[in-house]
Amino acid sequence: MTEPALPTSGVQLLEVEPELAGQRIDNYLLARLKGVPRTLIYRILRKGEVRVNKGRIKPEYKLQAGDIVRVPPLRLAERDEPAPLAQGLLERLEAAVVYEDKALIVLNKPAGVAVHGGSGLSYGVIEAFRQLRPDAKDLELVHRLDRDTSGLLMIAKKRSMLRHLHEALRKDGVDKRYMALVRGHWATSKKQVGAPLQKSNLRSGERMVEVSAEGKEALTLFRVLRRFGEFATLVEAKPVTGRTHQIRVHAKHAGHCIAGDSKYGDDEFTREIRDLGGKRLFLHAYMLKVPLPDGGELQLEAPVDEVWARTLERLGA
């Protein structure tokens, strides 16, 4: 592959290496055109200014080995390097890494940090790790967590690992489990919630999900971990399907919304938890079990943060 000069002016011709086959053109350009705003990349794609093998393509086009990608001249208003992220955030995310090898990074993502830039955010976890690991040219998110959800998040360092894990996710080969603090007394007999979910966008552009007969099939398995009287229950949630906001909406549908959920929660319950110091969404991806390409298995657990631990301590006092 021809390494692109950092975008200044002039046409760039990039040859796609075999290990990048199957990657979307937008993700390919986002990873290579460091310092170019996401909005500009999507604009040149939308206008057909990016050509593959001399032909127009759509942003969702998947590259093939040997494709020649033509990138038009790009002008940056200022410097051609991305603005460095705050050192404190970079150090925090570096410290959150719980596993790393040549092909995979797994971190315990802090609550409140988005997984990627967009929707008014200039950066997220993936942008931070592209600065933390400048030699890893193919960093991609394997899956996502909501901004306010904490816990185990996988980042592939190689396209082969990304393809392997996407295949495992499609075939239910990945076991992801969450902890959630919910309102009220969750009955031990309530072991699953199966309710179809449908996404919609409000006028503000905010994405909402609701239970609807017209939605997509969704199933979450639940298990009681600890009770705090009749006031709250700590549950384990295992999403069998992977719908947007699935655990949060299924918990609400079961009559037990999650503490700190500003979108689907109960304001009074959230306020009472906040009074105990719990100023966060109480949803944490604590366990992950994934098959590795060599036939082995990786199993990880991630501890909750101090806010979560201290709040539960006060609840149980």
Score class of each variant (00 low, 15 high):
A218Y: 09
A218G: 03
A218R: 13
A218K: 14
A218V: 13
L219C: 02
T220C: 06
T220I: 05
L221R: 14
L221C: 09
F222D: 00
F222H: 02
F222G: 04
R223C: 03
R223I: 03
V224S: 08
V224M: 03
R226I: 00
R226G: 01
R226D: 07
R226W: 07
R227F: 08
R227E: 13
G229N: 10
G229T: 10
F231W: 11
F231P: 02
A232H: 10
T233F: 04
L234W: 10
L234M: 11
L234R: 09
V235Q: 08
V235A: 08
V235L: 15
E236M: 05
E236I: 01
E236W: 02
A237C: 14
A237P: 00
A237T: 02
K238M: 08
P239Q: 12
P239G: 06
P239H: 12
P239S: 05
V240P: 00
T241G: 04
T241K: 11
G242C: 08
R243D: 04
T244A: 03
T244W: 01
T244R: 03
H245Y: 09
I247C: 04
R248F: 01
R248E: 09
H250G: 12
H250E: 07
A251F: 11
A251Q: 04
K252V: 03
K252I: 01
K252W: 02
K252M: 08
H253Y: 13
G255T: 13
G255N: 13
C257S: 15
I258M: 12
G260Q: 10
G260A: 07
S262M: 08
K263L: 15
Y264R: 06
G265A: 14
G265W: 12
D266H: 15
E268D: 11
F269Y: 11
F269A: 08
T270M: 08
T270R: 09
R271E: 13
E272S: 11
R274K: 10
